[in-house]
Amino acid sequence: MEKRIDIQKLEPNAYEAMFGLEKYLSSTGLDKTLALLIEIRASQVNGCAYCLDIHTKNALKNGESQRRIFALSAWWESPLFNDKEKALLQMVDEISLISEKGLSSPTYQKAKEQFTDKEIAQIIMQISTINVWNRIAISTHMVHEE
């Protein structure tokens, strides 16, 4: 795969804005484990190897188990994730694949049972941000280190 343009070099203000979102996300208090599950799962859904490499390494450093990372691709069948995490992961899938059905009412209601409105807002921002990073990495053919 041939690397394409480097948006960070060509449009540094765009990256500065993205880093601003990252700064906001790190200040929300959203549990780090949940944030990393979002980043890994969205990157799986979108097929972003670059982001999967980064976020799985970060999850392992944060204490996440390899077993749970491997099970993320079939989270809905796995007993390794609790109801709160399953509600979150369903949100990730539906928001990442927004054109299919959007964030469905049943999923939103499950989220409301597990999270406050403020947390739901933070989760939506986390999901949206990783989806932008995935789209940048995929469209520019960013490649992770071997």
Rank of each mutant, 00 (worst) to 15 (best):
I123Q: 12
T116R: 13
E64P: 09
S99Q: 08
A111V: 03
K84W: 08
N134L: 01
F19E: 14
M1K: 12
K112Q: 15
Q66T: 04
Q114T: 00
M18T: 06
E146T: 10
A137D: 14
I40S: 04
T129V: 02
A14F: 04
E145G: 08
I5F: 12
E145V: 11
I7E: 14
K86S: 08
Q122H: 11
T33M: 12
R4L: 15
T129Y: 02
K23H: 11
L89D: 06
S96H: 01
E100M: 04
L36P: 12
S96T: 04
A87Y: 07
Q90P: 07
A87M: 04
F19W: 07
T56W: 01
W133N: 11
V143H: 14
E2M: 15
Y108Q: 07
K84D: 12
I5C: 05
T28E: 02
K3W: 05
Y15S: 10
E2I: 13
K23N: 14
I7H: 07
Y50K: 06
A71D: 15
I136R: 14
K57M: 11
K61W: 02
A59D: 05
E22I: 02
Y24K: 10
D93W: 00
L34W: 06
E100K: 13
G63W: 04
P79G: 09
L80S: 11
M125T: 15
S99C: 06
C51D: 14
E77D: 13
Q66W: 03
R68T: 01
M142S: 11
M142A: 11
